[in-house]
């Protein structure tokens, strides 16, 4: 899952980025509105965390512009303004959720999960694919009653595939959603991770969940 943070307070953006990365998310940061708008328009983000008071271009303008451009990425407004009117105008401009500063990091995580779920049509934090159970809140993965331990990156890849299950996902798509903009896209790193996950969740089971689509990519299917 790739998250774009547009926040001008560097110390805040950096610590949130660190926290989110530790949760297995891929994070890009824009410290001003101009960069924020550019990245929102050009980087494939799964969620945009947008501060309203941004230098150069303010958050509300960015939101209106990307919605006008047809970008449907869920946007979580993050701001120090807390009047009802601010919330209403934010939501009316196309924001999907609203969080006021100061916020609890746990709450930010829960809201991110909720937004990702809402976008994928999953109603709870638990995704079930056959006998594979993924708890997106605790990052616990169970298959056939057995707890499977995954690294953060492995988990992120599995969760992304689970949310987009039954869909063919190309290597580029997977790389884009798992690595930030500084990552060199020319890489077989996805194949390596897919193999690791396969070993952990498919080995020893008759029914394979991860399918390779030759020349195109991968699919998680129950």
């Amino acid at each position: 899952m790739r998250i774009l943070i547009a926040e001008d307070e560097k110390s805040l953006a950096d610590i949130v980025k660190k926290g989110l990365k530790e949760e297995g998310y891929t994070v890009d940061v824009a410290y001003n509105g101009e960069d924020g708008l550019f990245m929102a328009e050009n980087e494939p983000s799964d969620i945009i965390i947008l501060d309203i008071m941004l230098p150069v271009i303010d958050g509300m303008t960015i939101l209106k512009k990307i919605r006008k451009a047809g970008i449907k990425t869920p946007v979580l407004m993050l701001t120090a303004k807390d009047t009802v009117m601010d919330k209403v105008s934010g939501l009316d401009s196309g924001a999907d959720d609203y969080l006021t500063k100061p916020f609890f990091f746990e709450e930010l995580l829960a809201r991110i999960r909720a937004l990702l779920r809402r976008n994928s049509g999953v109603k709870t934090s638990i995704i079930e694919i056959g006998d594979l159970i993924i708890d997106t809140a605790s990052h616990e993965v169970i298959r056939g009653g057995r707890v499977i331990s995954l690294s953060a990156k492995e988990y992120a890849l599995l969760e992304y595939m689970a949310i987009n299950r039954n869909k063919m996902l190309g290597r580029t798509t997977l790389t884009e959603h798992l690595y930030d903009q500084d990552f060199d896209l020319d890489s077989n790193v996805i194949d390596v991770f897919i193999n690791r996950i396969r070993n952990k969740i498919d080995r020893g089971f008759d029914k394979k969940l991860i399918h390779t689509i030759r020349g195109a990519g991968y699919m998680l299917k129950g």
Binding site: E9, S11, L12, I15, V16, K18, G19, E22, M53, A80, K81, D82, T83, T100, K101, P102, F103, F104, F105, E106
Partner: peptide, 25 residues
């Protein structure tokens, strides 16, 4: 008042996030 609270909210967010994230593991 709004500006003052805005100015205080940002460092407060930093404090909260820093300590929460530090304590997560």
């Amino acid at each position: 008042t709004a500006d003052a609270s805005h100015e205080l909210r940002t460092p407060l967010s930093v404090i909260l996030s820093q300590s929460e994230i530090a304590l997560r593991k």
